[in-house]
Amino acid sequence: MNTEATSPSPQGGASPSGPHPAAASGAREVAVPFPPTSFEPPHARTAKPEDGTWRPLAEGAAGGTPVLAQATVHPHKIKPHVYVHVVAIDLRKVALHLVAGTLEPQSKDIPAERRPGLVPAADQQDLIAVFNGGFMARHGKYGMRVEGDEFLPPRPDACTVALYQDGAVRIAEWSQIEADAPKMVGLRQTPPCLVTARELHPAIEDAVRPRKWSAAENGEVEIRRSALGVDATGRVLFYGSGEWVTAKDVAVAMKAAGAVDAAQLDINYSYTKFLFYGRPTPSDPLQVVSTLIQDTKHIKRGYVTTPAERDFFYLKRRSHAASSPSK
């Protein structure tokens, strides 16, 4: 279920039908720095000194060139303990993939051999990280498709993480990008988009009962949540995860970090994870070497030898031949 293609087109996050709607138009390409430039924390009262500053990560770096960077955001106006860690991902050098779990999303039409729940062996050599997908099928029946396998049909009103044949990633309501469906190699749907064209969802202020973005089984809304976003050029992807956060907190953090469009992924302690892979020594097998949030539930060789029951995304280094934007 490998969904890698070539890298994004010269317009950045261009979908097959045209450039990313937030990308600047014009014939001349705009340089995209990586790591991204520093950003202003959303609230001076709760910001920490390091907030808004991107720290290049060694994980996945080739020849000393960073392909991942991390920043922290404290998105709440008065609660300093609320935080979101954000990882920026250079899509010019890193490919995003989507894999179905062995059980989720539930589907009676896809046989077990089409859903092994593992990073393909051919991609493990260049594996950088794995992170969680979306809700279980019974929680909203949000659509998912990987290549020719449709596990659940897309919902018109659902936020959609779409992976294109040219390597681009788009995040938008399905009704806005449905026409591009034949040129997608994968899609995963979520509750309504947290951020669209730099604007927070109009219902996001309902922080007490954010039914659209769910809560813990006990009704608690300040929980661990995760999100995925993309910048205005479409060349930088953002994964965010934080503790004690509402949907609004995550949305505020993703927007502050530079996401013009963002979707909430899974929630709760057991299901949210961003795992970095490597080999502690050359003779060691591929395994999890660190996690974005220290207290993250995981299996050391999960996703590479131990199958995952739930869907997930993974990141791998692009080959040199695929690292240049398509023409």
Rank of each mutant, 00 (worst) to 15 (best):
F313I: 07
Q176K: 15
R188D: 12
I89L: 04
A27E: 13
P153G: 15
V130R: 02
Q11C: 11
V130C: 09
P35I: 00
T306F: 06
V208N: 14
P19Y: 03
K273Q: 15
A232D: 08
A122W: 02
V86W: 01
G229W: 07
R211M: 10
R198C: 04
I267G: 10
W174I: 10
G143P: 11
T102H: 05
Y83V: 10
Q106M: 11
V221G: 06
P120M: 06
I293S: 05
H85E: 14
L315Q: 05
E199V: 05
R170G: 15
L187P: 09
I78Q: 10
A23T: 13
A256P: 03
D206Q: 15
A31G: 02
S15Q: 11
E243K: 09
P80E: 10
V169G: 07
G133F: 11
N132C: 12
R318H: 01
G13R: 09
V252P: 02
F276A: 02
K273H: 15
G229R: 07
V30F: 02
S226L: 11
A62K: 13
P210M: 14
D249R: 07
P19L: 04
T160A: 09
E113L: 03
P16T: 07
E205P: 12
A247V: 08
A58M: 09
P120G: 03
T196H: 10
I78L: 11
S214C: 13
V304H: 02
P41T: 00
P210F: 14
P202Y: 08
N218C: 05
S175K: 12
K48S: 10
R310Q: 12
R114E: 08
T190W: 12
T160I: 13
G240A: 02
P19I: 08
G219M: 08
S324T: 04
K300I: 14
R301L: 06
V304R: 06
T37D: 03
Y277F: 13
K248R: 13
H298L: 00
E217H: 15
L187M: 15
L152Q: 12
R224T: 03
F312N: 07
A253F: 05
V250M: 15
D109Y: 02
D126C: 03
P307I: 11
E205F: 15
L127G: 02
G117D: 08
V252Y: 04
K108Y: 07
I223F: 06
A31D: 08
V73W: 06
G134M: 14
R92T: 02
R318L: 08
V32L: 00
S326V: 15
R115Q: 10
V82F: 07
G148N: 13
P56A: 05
L103I: 10
G186N: 08
R145Q: 14
S7N: 10
G242K: 08
A23M: 05
L103W: 06
R114I: 01
V67S: 06
I128H: 00
R301E: 11
E222Q: 06
K79E: 12
T246H: 06
V32Y: 00
V288F: 04
G134S: 15
V250Q: 14
P153Y: 12
S326P: 01
R55K: 11
E104R: 05
M136S: 12
L315C: 05
K300D: 09
L91A: 04
P120W: 03
L200F: 09
H320N: 10
A259G: 01
S226F: 07
Y142W: 14
S323G: 02
A23F: 03
A61T: 05
K77F: 03
V221W: 03
E4A: 11
Q189W: 11
H201Y: 10
P56F: 02
